[in-house]
Nucleic acid binder design. Structure first.
Lengths: 158, 158
DNA sequence: CTTTTTTTGTTGACACATCAACTAAATTTG
DNA sequence: CAAATTTAGTTGATGTGTCAACAAAAAAAG
C-alpha cells in the first residue's frame, strides 16, 4: 500500500539522527552482503577476511599491529586469529625479540581461500565504487575523515 | 612512534576494501559514542533510543511499521519493545482491527528519559553535521543512497 | 639490579545483531 | 465458507562486537 512512498527521508525528518540512522543501515547492508559473498565463495567470515586483507597488503603482522591499523577490538582479533590457526588458515611464528608477540601469516590453505574469495569481493567493491563518480568518491572519503575527526574531537572534550 | 603516520589511507591501499573498512570503522565510532551519551544522560540503550526517535517523529507505531521504516531486525525490535514495556518506558494498546498487532507509544516516564537524552544527542548530531558544508552533507546522503541502491541491485541479480 | 610501569595478548561476561522456526490472526482463493 | 497463503509478532540458536580483568614479558625508573 504505502510501498514506494518516501516515508523517511532527509527531507521530511528534522535532520535529527539521519547521519546515525543512514550510516547504521548502510553498514548493515554492506556487512550482510560481504558475509554472504565470503561465506558462499570461500566459507570465510568477515573478521577472517579482514585479517587476510591486511596480511596481503602489509605482509606478516602481529595482532597488535593489526589492531593499531584497523582499530578493531583486540579481543575479537585475538579470538579470530586463534580460530584461524586452529583451522589451518594462518600460522604464527613467535618473535625472537619479544616473547609475548607473534607474527602471523597466511598458510597455503589460507591463501588459497583468500584467492578464491578475492575476485568476488573485488567485483562487489568495483560495483560500489562505480556507482559514484571519482569526485563523489573523493568527497565521500573526505566526509568519512571529517566525521571521524569530529567524533574524536567531541570525545576528547568530555 | 608511528603514531600520526597515515599508515592506511585511500592513497596507499589498492582501493581494495576501503569502502567497507572505512564504513565499518566510522559506524563503530558513531555507535560507541551514541551508546556512551545515551547511557550517561538517560540510561538508555541505542535500540531503545531508535524506537523512541521513531515514535517521536511518527507518533504511536506498530513494531512492523518500525521494521519497514528502519529495516532493523524484527526479532531485535520485538525484544527491545518487550523490555521497554516491562521497564515502563513504553505502553502498548492492542489494535482493534487486528488482534495480532499492537500500537506502541511512550509513557510519561519514557518521554521524560527521551527528553533528557535528546539535547545531548542533538548537540552531537549538530557537531557531526557542522563539520561539513551543506553541499558536502547533501553529497554524503546522495552517496549513501547510491551505495544502498548498488547493493540492492547486486543482491537482486544473485 | 630490583621495583614499577607499560605493552602484548588472552579470556570471560555481556550486549547487540542475524537467521530461521514457530504461533496465531488475517486475508486470499477456489 | 473451508483451505491455502500471507502477515504480525515471538522465541531460540548462534554469531559478532565491546568492555574490562588478567598474566606474562618487556621497558623504564629508581
Amino acid at each position: 500500500m504505502t510501498e514506494n512512498m518516501p516515508e523517511q527521508t532527509a527531507e521530511n525528518t528534522p535532520l535529527q539522527q539521519m547521519v546515525m540512522f543512514r550510516l547504521a543501515r548502510l553498514h548493515a547492508k554492506v556487512n550482510a552482503q560481504s558475509t554472504k559473498i565470503l561465506n558462499k565463495s570461500a566459507g570465510l567470515s568477515l573478521s577472517q577476511w579482514r585479517i587476510m586483507v591486511l596480511i596481503e597488503t602489509h605482509g606478516k603482522i602481529t595482532p597488535t599491529k593489526f589492531v593499531r591499523l584497523t582499530k578493531f577490538d583486540k579481543g575479537l582479533v585475538s579470538r579470530t586469529i586463534k580460530g584461524m590457526i586452529k583451522s589451518g588458515l594462518l600460522h604464527s611464528e613467535s618473535s625472537k625479540s619479544d616473547q609475548r608477540s607473534h607474527l602471523v601469516d597466511m598458510t597455503e590453505k589460507g591463501r588459497a581461500l583468500f584467492e578464491k574469495a578475492r575476485p568476488h569481493m573485488r567485483q562487489r567493491q568495483s560495483r560500489l565504487l562505480e556507482c559514484m563518480t571519482l569526485a563523489e568518491r573523493q568527497a565521500l572519503f573526505q566526509s568519512f575523515d571529517k566525521l571521524e575527526l569530529a567524533i574524536d574531537d567531541l570525545e576528547s572534550l568530555s
